[in-house]
C-alpha cells in the first residue's frame, strides 16, 4: 500500500499564501473568520480565543480552521461545496483564521451555532490547528457549555477522560449583540487540550 506523504510544519510564513487578506496582502483566501452572512438562519455566535504554548505564551503564528454543521445539524450542505473561493453563500461551514492577523494573537469566528448532528452528537465545531513547531496538525472539537444535556450524551465527548473534557468546552460570555463563547487552546501543561486522531 502506498505510504502517506509525511506531514511537515506549516512554518511561520504561511499568512501571505493561506490568509492573504487577513495579513494585508492582495488576494482572497478560501475561508475567513466570517463564516456567515446576515441571511444565515440560526443563532449568531462568536467564538474567540487564543492558542498557548507550554510556557504560557500566546502563539502568534498559528492557523485555525473550523468545519461545522449548519443550524439544523446538516453537514452535507457544504460537503459538495468545498472552500472554493470567496463565497456569498449565507453559510459556508468553513472558517480559517491566522493568529498573526491581530496584534494580541486572538482568533475570532463569526458563525451560527451548529445543530445536533444526526440528533446524536452534541452541537460542536471541528477544529484543525497548524503552527510553526507543529510537525503534524492537530484536530480538536469545540463544544458549548450551555448544551450540558447534549454534551452528556455525546459519543465523542463521552470517550474523553472525564478530567479532560473541560478542555473541549467553550464558555459563554454574553455580549449584547451576539452570543460570544471563549475557547482557548493549550498545547501543553495542566490544561492541555484534548486532540483527536483522525
Amino acid at each position: 500500500m502506498p505510504r502517506q506523504t509525511p506531514s511537515q510544519t506549516i512554518g511561520p510564513f504561511f499568512g501571505f499564501g493561506l490568509v492573504p487578506d487577513q495579513y494585508g496582502f492582495a488576494g482572497t483566501a478560501i475561508g475567513s473568520g466570517t463564516m456567515v452572512t446576515d441571511q444565515a438562519s440560526g443563532q449568531r455566535i462568536r467564538i474567540v480565543g487564543r492558542v498557548f504554548d507550554g510556557a504560557g505564551d500566546v502563539i502568534p503564528d498559528a492557523l485555525i480552521e473550523i468545519w461545522q454543521a449548519d443550524a439544523t445539524g446538516r453537514c452535507d450542505g457544504f460537503t459538495n461545496e468545498p472552500p472554493s473561493g470567496p463565497s456569498d453563500a449565507p453559510f459556508t461551514g468553513f472558517g480559517r483564521v491566522g493568529t498573526g492577523a491581530r496584534s494580541d494573537g486572538r482568533f475570532e469566528f463569526e458563525t451560527v451555532k451548529p445543530g445536533s448532528v444526526n440528533g446524536l452528537q452534541a452541537p460542536h465545531l471541528q477544529v484543525t490547528l497548524f503552527m510553526r513547531g507543529l510537525l503534524r496538525h492537530v484536530v480538536t472539537r469545540i463544544y458549548f457549555a450551555d448544551e450540558h444535556e447534549a454534551n452528556l450524551r455525546d459519543p465523542v465527548l463521552s470517550a474523553v477522560p472525564r478530567g479532560r473534557r473541560d478542555t473541549l468546552i467553550a464558555r459563554c460570555t454574553d455580549s449584547h449583540s451576539s452570543r460570544t463563547y471563549s475557547f482557548d487552546i493549550h498545547m501543553q501543561g495542566e490544561r492541555e487540550t484534548v486532540f483527536f486522531d483522525v
Partner: peptide, 9 residues
C-alpha cells in the same frame, strides 16, 4: 513548547 505531550485520542 508546542508539541502536545499526550497522544491524540
Amino acid at each position: 513548547f508546542r508539541a502536545p505531550t499526550l497522544p491524540p485520542l
